[in-house]
């Protein structure tokens, strides 16, 4: 019927970026399972998938009571040794039965939640992307736990270079005529609706994680620039406030780095409108210009002081 997921993205609670070996240790969430790591075009490490069992109401916009039983797939990842994500999703399918079956039935279909009765995909998609009621499936809490597990690792020093809120992206994916819609709700919540051709594959979840990562980067950079109050305070102070962006964020922009070729057009269309990369580039230019202007000012001040001494 549809796939629903939620990705949480935040800054790793560590003073500097962590090396690949630490990322491997931090993400070892399952004995006997390798942490997958890729280095090109950006360092990326992802934990093994884990399952969480659920038996609860699913959010429906019509408020109809839809019960689902099954498992949610989750994982944690670290990008660039700096950004952490907790991601969960479940494939919602109609149950062939009208009552709950033995648990082994659901474990034979990892990542599938089976719903009883007359659920409509559109109703569930609307219900999930609006604010789901508290007693309904809570993918957010599950993703938050996968992010917290990483943040609580004893290998991290918990001295992040700046404070920034975590962002939540809720997504639903369905099969049909390709379309994508990203909506910004509050500062921290976004929803994404994807219609893709063919069967759902985990590559769609990868795409959502990649979009969530870049949306968070953009938000973080905006926040840092806002906090610097460029023009509202002396240049050197503003430039110092921008330094964390240069040290920790600017090199992380790598759109669609791990996105399947077949799904790349989704990224490209979002990049045309609203134009993620355009905005990012203009912000990066702004940060660099500020730093450059400030450097020039410092240089000329030093030169002036030198001339006066002669």
């Amino acid at each position: 019927m549809l796939v629903m997921g939620e990705v949480h993205t935040g800054l790793l609670q560590n003073s500097g970026e962590i090396p690949e070996s630490s990322a491997r240790d931090v993400l070892r969430l399952l004995a006997g399972e390798t942490v997958r790591v890729s280095r090109r075009p950006i360092a990326y490490a992802v934990s093994p998938d884990r399952l969480t069992g659920v038996d609860c109401r699913l959010p429906a916009a019509s408020q109809s009571r839809v019960r689902g039983v099954g498992t949610v797939v989750s994982r944690s990842s670290i990008t660039g040794g700096r950004v952490v994500q907790g991601s969960s999703y479940a494939h919602v399918q109609r149950s062939g039965s009208d009552r709950r079956l033995a648990w082994s039935h659901y474990l034979a279909r990892p990542g599938v939640i089976e719903v009883f009765g007359k659920a409509r995909a559109e109703d569930l998609a609307d219900g999930f992307t609006e604010d789901p009621p508290a007693d309904c499936l809570d993918l957010g809490a599950i993703s938050a736990r996968f992010m917290d597990t990483v943040q609580a690792s004893p290998l991290l020093d918990r001295r992040a270079p700046f404070k920034i809120a975590r962002a939540r992206l809720r997504w639903v994916a369905r099969t049909g005529e390709p379309a994508i819609r990203l909506t910004l709700h509050s500062d921290q919540v976004r929803t994404l609706r994807i219609v893709h051709e063919g069967e759902f594959t985990p590559a769609v979840a990868d795409l959502c994680e990649d979009l969530a990562l870049h949306d968070w980067l953009l938000t973080a950079l905006l926040v840092i620039i806002e906090r610097a109050r460029v023009g509202g305070r002396p240049g050197p102070e503003a430039a110092a406030k921008l330094a964390p962006a240069v040290d920790h964020l600017l090199h992380l922009w790598m759109p669609a780095a791990r996105v399947d070729d077949a799904l790349a057009p989704f990224w490209e269309s979002l990049d045309r409108r609203p134009g993620f990369t355009r905005q990012w580039q203009s912000l990066v230019d702004r940060v660099r210009d500020q730093v450059a202007v400030n450097t020039l000012a410092l240089l000329s001040a030093t030169a002036d002081a030198g001339r006066r001494r002669q």
Partner: peptide
């Protein structure tokens, strides 16, 4: 290889009704 640990890590608890993921199992 601690096979028993390996299997213990792969236990996914049978959820009671009203388990919506908001709390750890």
């Amino acid at each position: 290889v601690e096979l028993a640990r390996l299997v213990e890590d792969r236990l996914v608890d049978d959820p009671a009704p009203e388990t919506n993921g908001s709390r750890p199992p």
